[in-house]
Amino acid sequence: MTSTWVPPEEYVKTIANATSYAGFYFTDTAGRPIQLRSAHSAETWQWPGGNMDPGETPWECARRECFEETQMAFTGPQKLLAVHFITQGAEWPLNKFGVIFDGGRLTDEQISSITLDPDEHTELLIHTLEKWEAIMNPASFARLKAADDARRTGTVAYLER
């Protein structure tokens, strides 16, 4: 079989493209997940994170987004909890993948020092998983539960949606 060399600018048109995000999963000292309400959708709860900038690694993105959204400079270890792949289907031309890091357990003092960017988030809440399940959409809750399970079991979760 002979292969034909294809210039990079042509080759990239033949493969799947994706956007990417990274973020941190935080809990309080009792292990209850901490989430932020999106300023763009009152029904959306998420953790600090966002889309990666060109040339940025997932770790750099998670740290940058965490600081931008909470004014908290994360200095903990790089501990991967989950990889998340989202196929967008016909309504959007790009798939998306995410990298979720363990932000650890925050003390009451750390939580009270969080300053939300009002353009990004309107509220911070801490609930048990059972309470989060009752108020989140199923896909978002599945991501939250997978990150929590990964932390508890010491494994890395892989999600597809």
Rank of each mutant, 00 (worst) to 15 (best):
A42P: 04
H40G: 12
K13C: 01
S41R: 12
Q46N: 11
D149P: 02
I34G: 01
A42F: 06
L159E: 11
L94H: 12
C61P: 01
Q46M: 12
M52I: 07
S113A: 15
E130T: 08
T4P: 04
A39K: 06
D117V: 01
T155G: 10
R63A: 05
A150L: 00
W5R: 13
T75D: 14
G104V: 10
V12S: 06
H121Q: 07
G98C: 02
L159A: 03
K131W: 06
P54D: 09
Q88K: 11
S113R: 14
S41V: 08
W5A: 15
P8W: 10
P48Y: 01
W45Y: 07
T115F: 01
D102Q: 00
F74L: 04
P118Q: 09
D108G: 15
F85E: 09
G23W: 00
T44F: 14
K13G: 05
G23Q: 03
A42H: 02
P54V: 05
T29S: 12
W92C: 08
I15E: 09
S41A: 13
K13L: 11
Y11N: 14
A134R: 10
T153D: 13
F67A: 12
P58N: 09
V12D: 05
L159R: 04
L36H: 05
A30L: 14
P8N: 06
E120M: 08
R161S: 11
I15V: 14
E9N: 09
E91L: 13
G76Q: 12
A139T: 11
R37K: 06
N17W: 15
F24I: 04
M1T: 12
R64L: 08
H121N: 14
R105G: 02
V6C: 09
T2M: 13
Q88L: 12
M52Q: 11
